[in-house]
């Protein structure tokens, strides 16, 4: 086993040599229920440690943003929340990840069912090469959520409405999804995620391939979705993290350096590393 302290000894910025990942007793009070929780979560890609004992509480029905430089572990951490790292060869995970208090890595948990409860939207819109209707209906079909065509139609319509896409596509549901604009494709992917009634939506840089108008639509959608869903978003766009999230977590070289109320992090960060990163003084 690789010791945690070895992870970045040679890589870390000397001025931040004393930075440590946040212990449980320094996590902020959330003032509401915790939807997902990790404790001492460590992950290795073969012998390279990528996460060094992350403790984090994800608040229910709020947006939590993960920020940090490339390679800091934020996407790796995000993928641990719905076991998307399971299929990667050489990955070893230690520690606890819970959803409503239940260990998601327990042998009894079916990863497919877990991913229905904890859905994911990726960086690049990835619609299936099928019709708009079939993209949204795909999940409900394989999870058996609709018993007849009427039920399925209702799920497709409500999912597209929640994703703010219904009015744009209701007259062309049979057309190929791949013919939509990038922004529409990403909102379709969000609709596809919503269609299986998840409780948590993980978003990995969902707007990085979108223009400002499409980005604004997705951000508005995120704001509306948090009434019903817990959202975790990874973003390199600091302004986006500031705009859409209520809680912001800053990662650096596999460690969670700071997590706090978003307004506090962007106005008065508690850690010098966070300050250097968000003000553009890093490295």
């Amino acid at each position: 086993m690789v010791a945690v302290t070895e992870i970045t000894a040679s890589e870390r910025d000397a001025s931040h040599a004393d930075a440590v990942t946040i212990p449980v007793d320094r996590l902020p009070e959330l003032g509401g229920p915790v939807k997902m929780q990790t404790r001492d979560l460590k992950l290795w890609y073969s012998d390279k440690q990528a996460l060094a004992g992350i403790n984090l509480d994800v608040p229910e029905r709020q947006v939590t943003a993960f920020i940090g430089p490339s390679g800091c572990g934020k996407t790796t951490f995000l993928k641990c929340l719905n076991r998307m790292n399971d299929t990667i060869e050489g990955v070893r995970i230690e520690g606890d990840v819970t959803l409503d208090g239940t260990d998601v890595y327990d042998r009894s948990v079916d990863p497919v069912q877990l991913r229905a409860r904890v859905g994911m939207v990726f960086q690049k819109p990835n619609p299936f090469p099928k019709s708009i209707y079939d993209n949204v209906a795909y999940g409900p079909r394989i999870h058996g959520l609709a018993t007849n065509r009427g039920d399925l139609d209702a799920i497709v319509e409500s999912s597209l409405q929640r994703a703010g896409l219904w009015n744009e596509v209701k007259d062309r549901l049979g057309e190929m999804a791949t013919g939509m604009s990038g922004g529409q494709q990403q909102r379709l992917c969000i609709a596809r995620t919503i269609a299986v009634s998840p409780e948590v939506i993980l978003m990995d840089e969902p707007c990085s391939a979108l223009d400002p108008i499409s980005t604004a639509r997705v951000e508005e959608l995120i704001d509306e979705l948090r009434d019903n869903y817990t959202i975790v978003i990874v973003t390199h766009n600091l302004q986006q993290a500031a705009r859409v999230s209520q809680l912001t977590a800053f990662f650096h070289l596999g460690r969670l350096i700071e997590v706090n109320d978003t307004a506090e992090v962007f106005q008065n960060p508690g850690e010098s590393m966070t300050r250097d990163y968000i003000t553009g003084r890093f490295g």
Partner: peptide, 9 residues
């Protein structure tokens, strides 16, 4: 520049 943190202050 969209200043943040100490730059914003």
């Amino acid at each position: 520049r969209q200043p943040l943190a100490e730059d914003l202050r």
